[in-house]
Each structure stands twice: as C-alpha cells, then as structure tokens.
Design a protein around this nucleic acid. Structure first.
Length: 234
DNA sequence: CCAGACGTTGTT
DNA sequence: GTCTGG
DNA sequence: CCAGACGTTGTT
DNA sequence: GTCTGG
C-alpha cells in the first residue's frame, strides 16, 4: 500500500495546518509529487516548545540496526501489530509522529499483451486524495539511528490499516489517517498504550477521491506535477 | 544456551 | 535491544 | 510502492 | 524469481 505519497503544499501551509515551528533542515522544501521510500520528507513531532516539523528519511532504521539498509523494508507498520513487533515497539511507545501528505498512490495491475502476444502487466497508478486535495496527517512512528559519534539519522514509518470500502476494489490496505482531534494525544509522550490503540482503531478515514494518473509516477525519482494529473488508463 | 531476525505488500 | 527458533 | 539489477577479475 | 535502491 502506502509506498508513495504527495506533499504539494509549501512549508507555510504545513506549519499552518499542523501548528508547527519549522526545523532548520526544512527551509528549502519544494512541492513534492512523488515521495518514495528512502527519500526525505517533513515529519511533525511533539517538541518542548510545541509541535515541530523536521526532515526525516522514509523507512524506519531502529537504533540497534547495524546497517541503514534495513530501513528500505520498514516503510510501513501494521497498526494492528505495531505495538508488538521488535522493530517497531519502542518507537510506537515513545516516538510517534504525523506525516503530512495531500495524497498517496495505489497501483492496479492490468494484464495486457506485449510484443509477440507475450503477457505483460501494466501498472496503472491512481492518486488518492481528499476532495479539494487538502492536507491530512498519516500516523507514523520514528527512530534515531547513529552511524557514528557525530552522525544521527531520523527515520520514519507509516502505519497502515484495512482499506475503507471506496478504496477496497483497488487495494486492501491504506495509511492510517488521523483526524485533527487525535493529533495531540497521538504525539504526546504520556499517552497510555491503550489510548493509542483507541486512537488508531477509531480513526475513521476521511472522504477520499481517486483518479488514474500518468505512469510517469511509477519511476521513483520522477517528481513533477504531471504525476497527479488525471490520465486515461489503458 | 547461541544465532539470527527484527517487515509489509501483493499475487496466486 | 529483544524475541524466536533450533 | 516500482524499476532495475542480479558479478568478478583485472586493467586502464 | 528475488533483492536493492530510490
């Protein structure tokens, strides 16, 4: 499921929606139409002076990891089990975050014929977003990893849940999207684990729309407005 | 006890 | 670091 | 998530 | 087919 997402709004809009200050590393954020695993994105956490948005790498690297490469496999965490998994539990209990987004992608495998009648699969991407393409908060967890005495890397993972009916035909999992009234408790250090489960379990997904887009988005590293432009599939 | 994994998705 | 499997 | 690689030796 | 990188 959530293997790509968009964040086309500028920093002012993010700061405004999430009530954050901006960490130094974010001052140059440009609209993003194709954020892929291992890339950096702005993430909101609770800080002493209030919420703060700072850059983190997508794909959680636990503190005990010997190698950053584990992060490429830890881009999603199932909300149903995130509290019990070795790789996620500590982050779930102590380091939760909001991942600002205004859309994400899912793919439909279309079976077609290639040259010589050979079967091949065309992967048709769909952009999924709120009506009006407003910002929303994906539930996330994060970790700090040290590769040496002076180098620290902040990484995050996006929580998932069963897809709601309007999306299910396309995909059975979606990111957990937290309503604004759950943000503070989700981010707070002191929220008890039971309450966290309630927040995740009661998070009704917002109304979502989807439409097919150019297969240009399939290529990680291609990041331009036509990633979200409506395309005729097939 | 030690060694090795630590995760999700989708597809059939 | 902590859990699971052998 | 998708796309692209998947490997080593030795030579320049 | 499966793993890695983005």
């Amino acid at each position: 499921m959530c293997g790509r997402f968009t964040l086309t709004r500028n920093l002012d809009a993010i700061a405004d929606t999430f009530g954050t200050g901006i960490a130094p590393g974010l001052s140059d954020h440009e609209p993003r139409y194709n954020i892929a695993p291992t890339e950096e994105a702005p993430v909101v956490i609770a800080a002493p002076g209030g919420r703060r948005a700072g850059p983190m790498r997508w794909g959680l690297v636990p503190a005990w990891a010997k190698d950053v490469r584990i992060g490429a496999r830890l881009i999603n965490a199932r909300s149903e089990t995130v509290g019990t998994r070795n790789a996620f539990r500590e982050s779930f209990l102590a380091r939760r975050c909001l991942v600002p987004a205004d859309g994400f992608y899912e793919w439909e495998a279309r079976h077609a014929e290639g040259p010589g009648g050979k079967p091949r699969v065309r992967k048709q991407p769909y952009w999924i977003h709120r009506p009006g393409a407003g910002l929303f908060a994906m539930a996330g967890i994060w970790a700090l990893w040290s590769s040496g005495p002076d180098s620290r890397l902040a990484t995050f993972s996006v929580l998932t849940r069963d897809a709601p009916d309007p999306i299910r035909w396309l995909h059975d999992r979606v990111p957990v999207i937290l309503p604004e009234d759950g943000w503070t408790d989700w981010l707070a250090r002191g929220t008890p684990p039971e309450a966290l489960g309630d927040i995740l379990g009661s998070a009704d997904p917002p109304e979502l729309q989807l439409h097919p887009v150019s297969r240009a988005v399939n290529r990680a590293g291609y990041d331009a407005p036509d990633c979200i432009r409506e395309a005729t599939p097939g």
